[in-house]
């Protein structure tokens, strides 16, 4: 099997629930749940049996309404939250033979620092607002083992230029920046150690249209130049249409449809997807 055909990341049967569950809901019977939670015990099933593969150089879109489990899925993949069950494998980590979710927290941190980058919807989560922008980038590099100030400063400078942050503002803390700039610093930080996988969680939500366009442009450009694999979560179908090669639609913690983005948008099969596509302004 050549590189192109074997996935860089595969997720198998990922489950995430909040609450222990009860006799009523533990059977996994769909009819017994109200949307994604159990009316008897209040347990929320945020992600249910999610499986997908991410291929090298691919942009994989995840759409769904608010509360459908998109962000929870991303948090689980970045180890911000522990999963309830399921497996994930990265090809570049121990030959893809070890389940990431079963690793120790040190190993998870290592994977996060060496294999992944994440851009959060809210820059406060992804950046240290009081530290300088270049320090924010250095943080990720230090975590990945660098102890050379000159090299880190050079790398940070290159990346910040890449995302169009003026060099003279490099040492300013992100709290002085506009939302769009903060988002671009986050992207620079996420890219700092050349991660093979980039997770983007609603990166353009809340930005005005022209800034949205420039951030999307940047992501597209970087993705082509560096050939990274991206998982992008959005409830904005325009963003998905522009960026994603393949798309997965989520509703109430389940995957209801997936396929090529064009196919999903032009010929939606599931009732919810049809509604979603037709409500596009």
């Amino acid at each position: 099997m050549n590189d192109f055909e074997s996935p860089i990341l595969s997720v198998k049967n990922l489950n995430k629930q909040y609450g222990a569950g009860c006799g009523h809901c533990r059977t996994g019977d769909e009819e017994r749940l109200m949307k994604n939670y159990c009316p008897k015990c209040g347990t929320v099933y945020a992600c249910r049996h999610i499986s997908f593969d991410l291929y090298p150089g691919e942009v994989f879109g995840i759409v769904g309404e608010s509360g459908s489990g998109k962000s929870t899925l991303m948090q689980c993949l970045y180890f911000d939250q522990d999963v309830t069950g399921g497996e994930a494998y990265i090809r570049t980590y121990k030959n893809g033979e070890v389940n990431l979710f079963g690793e120790s927290s040190q190993q998870k941190r290592h994977i996060r620092n060496h294999q992944m980058g994440k851009v959060y919807q809210n820059p406060v989560l992804g950046l240290r607002m009081g530290f300088s922008s270049i320090g924010n980038i250095a943080e990720k590099l230090i975590a990945a083992g660098s102890r050379n100030v000159g090299a880190m400063e050079g790398r940070g400078r290159t990346l910040l230029e890449h995302v169009n942050i003026p060099v003279r503002r490099m040492k300013e803390p992100p709290k002085n920046f506009s939302g769009g700039m903060q988002q671009r610093v986050q992207i620079a930080k996420a890219l700092s150690n050349n991660p093979p996988i980039l997770l983007l969680d609603e990166v353009t939500t809340g930005l005005d249209l022209s800034v949205q366009a420039s951030v999307l442009d940047l992501i597209k450009k970087l993705q082509r130049q560096l050939n990274i694999s991206i998982i992008i979560v959005s409830h904005d179908l325009g963003v998905i249409r522009m960026l994603a090669d393949r798309t997965m639609v989520m509703l109430d913690g389940r995957v209801i449809e997936y396929g090529l983005t064009d196919q999903i948008l032009e010929d939606p099969q599931h009732r919810y997807t049809q509604q979603l596509v037709h409500s596009l302004l």
Binding site: Q106, R128, G135, I142
Partner: peptide, 14 residues
Amino acid sequence: EYSGAWLMLFEQIM
């Protein structure tokens, strides 16, 4: 996980 300690020194250098 001590990147924070080094980061604080990095900030001083910056």
